[in-house]
Every structure is written in C-alpha cells, then in structure tokens.
C-alpha cells in the first residue's frame, strides 16, 4: 500500500445526514453495481466462480460489463504489474462517475507474495481504492462480503458525491 499524504478526516469523520432523495438514489446505485470484467490473475478465477452457479453474483444486481464506459465498479482481481499499471489507470479514468474500486486479493492490496521488481506494491499506488479484500485467493464468499460492504458504504454517502473532487490516488 502507499503512504498517502491525504487527509482522511477531511469530512470530519462524522456521520452525514441523508435526505430521502439521497437514500433513494443510493438504494438504486448500490443495488445495481455493474463491475468491469477486469480479471488479471488467479483472483479472476475466484471472481468467475463468484459469478457462476454456486455463488451467484447476479443476485446482487451485478452484471459484468466489458467496457469501462458502462461500468460502475472495478474489481481489481489479481497482480498489478508495472507494465500493466498504465493501462489500469487509463481504464479507471475512462469510467464515468460515480465509480468505486474494490481491490481483491493480496496482490492488489499490497503486492502480495510478489515482493519483486515487476509488481506494483498495491493497486492504491495507482488508483484510489474503496474496499480492500484480503486473501490469496479470497473465497467467493469474501468477494460477496466485500460487495455488501461497498453497498453499505454507498448508502452512507450523499448522492451528489460526484461534485466532490476525487483524490488522485
């Protein structure tokens, strides 16, 4: 993970008051999160297993979209290498607001077991991450839990979040 010089308590950390409209919009947004098909390595297999028959991902309202322009959330499943980091950032920039990032697995969180020259030590050196998901590879239930946490996070935020400037990384 990166050592950020970002002030996390800029919002005060206090709970935000939400109006009915906010709750309604957040209800809509959180219950139909469309992820981008972004499987990089082994965690991609677990992501596919989450989307398959036993651990159905579709019941959360998620549909995997191939194009970043149509996706809400990007699940970074797998090792991010330095050769690929540029394309990761480009894909993230191509997603329209509001967008979220789930970093799945040890390699995406902190570089994982690959403490080498070619691995980015954490996807949050490149994109701002909302949910970190530990495991190598994390079980499908863990990915479902992460999505539920993300849904909870979305429901807590004001709906006009797009107007706030997203942090760089």
């Amino acid at each position: 993970m990166a050592q950020h010089k970002v002030n996390y308590l800029a919002n005060g950390g206090a709970p935000i008051v939400l109006t009915s409209i906010d709750k309604f919009i957040n209800f809509g947004r959180s219950n139909s999160l469309w992820p981008l098909t972004y499987g990089l390595a082994c965690c991609a297999i677990e992501m596919m297993a989450t989307g398959a028959s036993r651990y159905d991902f579709d019941r959360f309202g998620t549909i995997f979209r191939a194009s970043p322009r149509q996706a809400d959330v990007i699940v970074i499943a797998g090792t991010l290498t330095k050769k690929h980091a540029e394309f990761m950032r480009r894909l993230y920039d191509q997603m329209p607001d509001p967008k979220w990032v789930i970093s799945m697995g040890s390699c995406a969180n902190t570089g994982g077991m690959f403490n080498t020259y070619a691995t980015v030590q954490g996807a949050d050196r490149v994109v701002p991450v909302d949910i970190y998901l530990p495991g190598c590879a994390p079980r499908p239930e863990t990915l479902q839990y992460a999505l539920m946490m993300l849904q909870k996070k979305i429901r807590r935020e004001p709906a006009s979040k797009a107007i706030q400037r997203k942090r760089l990384v």
Partner: peptide, 9 residues
C-alpha cells in the same frame, strides 16, 4: 507525484 504517493513499502 513521487512525493504525493510515497515510496513503495
């Protein structure tokens, strides 16, 4: 941006 992001851990 090297300073904003910080060295690798």
């Amino acid at each position: 941006a090297r300073d904003t992001i910080g060295p690798e851990i």
